[in-house]
């Protein structure tokens, strides 16, 4: 069992890891490098590093992270469950336990597809590794928001009879023969008891199952019971959410979406998580 689990490896998450480590806590951190930081050509307002590029900053943050004891797990977190005295974190098909959690996943303005939440678990899945074997020999569709979703679609193609892939980003795709690319705009899922169709702007996909693969999941399915305000998590001055022992930091808590704020909040969240752990003893 880890002392602190951090979801998200951007500036807020890494700042939280550095500070939790300084307070002698064991740390696990989930996720890949922040794409938002990596894609920033320059960050002009982070004090002390006036001309640093996003890529350089991410590199420096990772170097700093390596100086800590943090276990780094490059998997998508599907859900965080409050178990009472601890938290259970599902990262793809594996579970991890921690006494406290800091959410630092960033903010996601991508709108969900209509009925995505209604059919979640009923024909719509966020995790290919978890549910692929259920669709052996069947037809599935993947709505892919990131490069990892291409690998996942190929993995599904090994198991399934046919895979439709709807790319939500630009790129060159290399797929197995039974994958068909549909370049269209998904509008909504449709079906009676479970999702049976994906309605797109100019076409329609009928399939046995649908996978929506993105970097971060809608907050309400990520943490059941979490109080949110639109794309943001509600926190108090200590960066604690409505769930005891669960903190949040960075863009996820609201504007301004800036590196300096994320780093500051990561520190506040980590120090208060440490205090929470010390009081629990």
């Amino acid at each position: 069992m880890f002392d602190v689990a951090i979801i998200g490896k951007g500036p807020a998450g890494i700042s939280a890891a550095v500070n939790a480590f300084a307070r002698n806590k064991s740390v696990v951190i989930f996720g890949g490098d922040s794409k938002k930081v990596l894609l920033s050509p320059s960050i002009p307002n982070y004090p002390g590093l006036p001309k640093i590029s996003g890529k350089d900053l991410m590199e420096r943050l990772n170097e700093h992270l390596k100086l800590t004891n943090a276990t780094i797990i490059n998997k998508t977190v599907i859900a965080v469950y409050a178990m009472g005295n601890y938290f259970s974190i599902q990262a793809e098909n594996d579970f991890y336990e921690a006494k406290s959690v800091i959410l630092a996943t960033g903010v996601d303005f991508k709108k969900s597809i209509e009925n995505e939440d209604t059919f979640l678990g009923n024909g719509v899945s966020y995790c290919a590794t978890c549910d692929a074997p259920l669709y052996k020999g069947k037809v599935v569709a993947v709505v892919g928001y990131n490069h990892e979703s291409v690998e996942e679609a190929n993995f599904l193609a090994e198991v399934c009879q046919k895979v439709y892939f709807v790319p939500m980003f630009k790129g060159e795709f290399k797929f197995k023969e039974n994958v068909e690319i549909i370049k269209d705009n998904p509008l909504k899922f449709d079906g009676s008891l479970k999702a049976e169709k994906l309605v797109l702007k100019n076409s329609l996909i009928e399939a046995d199952g649908f996978f929506v693969l993105k970097d971060s999941l809608p907050l309400t399915s990520l943490v059941p019971g979490l109080e949110v305000d639109g794309p943001h998590v509600l926190v108090d001055k200590r960066m604690e959410t409505n769930i005891k022992g669960l903190f949040a930091a960075g863009d996820i808590t609201g504007k301004p979406y800036q590196v300096a704020k994320a780093i500051g909040e990561g520190q506040i969240a980590a120090l208060n998580a440490a205090e929470y752990l010390d009081q629990k003893k």
């Binding site: 678990g121 009923n122 024909g123 899945s125 549910d131 259920l134 008891l193 479970k194 046995d208």
Partner: peptide, 17 residues
């Protein structure tokens, strides 16, 4: 066990476990 008993699972539309 869903792998050994696919009929019941399919009847009740189990699509995620």
């Amino acid at each position: 066990n869903l792998d050994e008993n696919p009929m019941t699972a399919s009847l009740y539309g189990i699509s995620s476990i």
